[in-house]
């Protein structure tokens, strides 16, 4: 994989097209900025989608892949519905985030990235989401006392979920999940293998 990317050449754009989900759409952006203007969190993005697309064309590989910006996407789909060129912008944002994560360039402490990882590990483990484990892992990811503070702040929601049966305290001790977990894990492992081979990725961490 190329690491020295020339400015305003197609190298990085081609890399994105090859490796990022829906990346082949990036070249079709006509820089109108409707996506950036439509994003409800637009102000919070360091580089809104229009700018990310331009940075890709400008060959700013490291800045794009290390950016926190695409992790800000909440999948509201405003940009997709409004893009006059029909770019699947939401999917491209997630594709970029996923690619950066796979390369290990994504910002390590980005809360969205960490949540996504906890969520994926949780669901990939048993084939179903275990809400109890998921919430506890999330609250306590920054240490025991921070976890307690977070859990306390969310107690009303937690109790409500308990009452309505949405959160099972026994889930902490029961594995739960689908019937043939081994099959699922084998299936995922094979999918990783195929993707890694196709995209020429290094060893998974």
């Amino acid at each position: 994989m190329t690491s020295a990317v020339e400015k305003y050449r197609n190298n990085f754009l081609r890399e994105v097209e090859a490796n990022v989900e829906e990346g082949e759409w990036v070249k079709m952006c006509m820089q109108c900025g409707v996506c950036s203007g439509s994003c409800p969190l637009g102000d919070a993005w360091e580089h809104p989608p229009q700018e990310l697309f331009m940075m890709i064309r400008a060959g700013k590989r490291d800045q794009v892949l290390a950016s926190e910006s695409m992790w800000m996407c909440t999948s509201c789909y405003s940009c997709i519905t409004r893009c006059p060129r029909g770019l699947p912008i939401t999917h491209i944002m997630h594709g970029l985030a996923n690619y950066a994560n796979r390369l290990g360039i994504a910002p390590k402490m980005n809360p969205t990235r960490r949540f996504a990882k906890i969520f994926w590990d949780n669901i990939a483990h048993t084939g179903r989401v275990n809400e109890t484990k998921l919430s506890l892992r999330l609250y306590f990811m920054d240490g025991f006392f921070t976890g307690l503070r977070r859990a306390f702040a969310m107690r009303k929601v937690g109790l409500g979920m308990l009452r309505t049966g949405r959160l099972n305290p026994l889930g902490l001790f029961r594995a739960g999940g689908i019937a043939r977990k081994g099959e699922l894990r084998k299936l995922l492992a094979r999918a990783y293998e195929i993707e890694d081979a196709r995209k020429n990725f290094g060893k998974r961490n």
Partner: peptide, 14 residues
């Protein structure tokens, strides 16, 4: 025509 050029990979820089 513009769109066709983008599909071919012509880069447009504002």
């Amino acid at each position: 025509f513009y769109r066709a050029a983008q599909e071919m990979g012509v880069v447009f820089t504002n």
